[in-house]
Design a protein around this nucleic acid. Structure first.
Lengths: 126, 126
DNA sequence: GGTGTAATCAACGAATCAGTTGATCAACAG
DNA sequence: CTGTTGATCAACTGATTCGTTGATTACACC
């Protein structure tokens, strides 16, 4: 099992890496198996160098790794880092928000009561 | 019941929003209930205006929403968008990569064979 | 009205990023 | 050795981002 707690820097790089449609497409493509830079660059209307840089960003984020085959450098997806991201999100997505939502309204009311102010009857401004 | 398939732009903004330790800390804090800008700004060594902007980024990403209470603007976490992110990741994290990993080595071998080159005397998979 | 508080807007500088083109490196093939 | 292919490096530009300070809006209390 992978270390569930990534450093801030790890998360920074990983989330930032996925904040780009080209890089997400590369991840999607790699989930179906490894590919070379040329193969990955083909679907896009940008230069091969740009794709190479995108891959480097993904690699620094730990989302992919590169092996070696002669001149080729097949890129592989690193599922572990993806799981680290879901691990982070899962900590907060099962939110106990709903109940607090109602509580928030109560606190608001309480504030008006303690300050003696009448609770505003449907704020409308002009 | 949120649309499980977010647009590229939605994902861009959401992932980018989480690619910052301050904003992630805000999300973490909000998972324990709504808070005002001042409350959210307190733990950080940056100006209140900067935090306000961070919240705006999160809001544009659909990760939080703001209600209204007099001068205060309590910020609430939007769990739905977080789930949209895990939904995207989950599509690729259960990767069939491992099997392709081995296949990759085979393809490499095949390449050497078809080109008549002697393959490295290493790979042996029973 | 006037004061104080919560929050945003506006303008600015420093830093980072995505893309480009041109040169370079490394591994083959002849 | 020469040529070709796969891929990266280097330098440059335009756009975006993060933080700052100063001014401004919106509301509440007196």
């Amino acid at each position: 099992m992978v270390d569930a707690t990534s450093t801030d820097d790890d998360l920074d790089r990983a989330f930032a890496a996925l904040a780009d449609p080209v890089r997400r497409a590369i991840v999607a493509r790699l989930s179906r198996g490894p590919a070379t830079v040329n193969e990955l660059a083909e679907p896009f209307a940008i230069s091969k160098q740009a794709v190479s840089r995108h891959i480097q960003v993904l690699e620094l984020a730990g989302l992919v790794s590169r092996t070696r085959d002669a001149q080729r450098r097949p890129v592989h997806l690193e599922a572990a880092r993806l799981e680290a991201l879901t691990a982070w999100i899962d900590r907060y997505r099962l939110v106990r928000e709903q109940q607090y939502r109602a509580l928030d309204a109560l606190v608001e009311q309480a504030h008006h009561l303690t300050t003696g102010a009448p609770s505003a009857p449907t704020k409308e401004q002009s």
